[in-house]
Amino acid sequence: MLDIIARILNREAGGSREIAKERLRLVLVHDRSSSSPELLNALKEDLIKVIRDYLEIDEEALLVNFENESDSVALIANIPVKGFRRVVNE
């Protein structure tokens, strides 16, 4: 009886299939980012290029990394700003 109730509850929650998919998705984001540091470096360089047009930043101290939360993965960038560029209105 308990088994049946547990099954019904499980099905409502999407079954263990959905849990597996979600966990797999998260772990692969992490695996792929750590197994190809080149990708992260390329992203870092592109970020610097874009931001340089607007801000003066400390390129040496710039940090870009993936962080795992319980149910998501976030791209965290820590970019020390030294100053703003004067924006010329056209």
Partner: peptide
């Protein structure tokens, strides 16, 4: 798979 307790072909191909 039918009972939602195993990943299906499409799930794996997607990933």
């Amino acid at each position: 798979v039918k009972h939602g307790d195993m990943m299906d072909i499409d799930d794996i191909i997607d990933i």
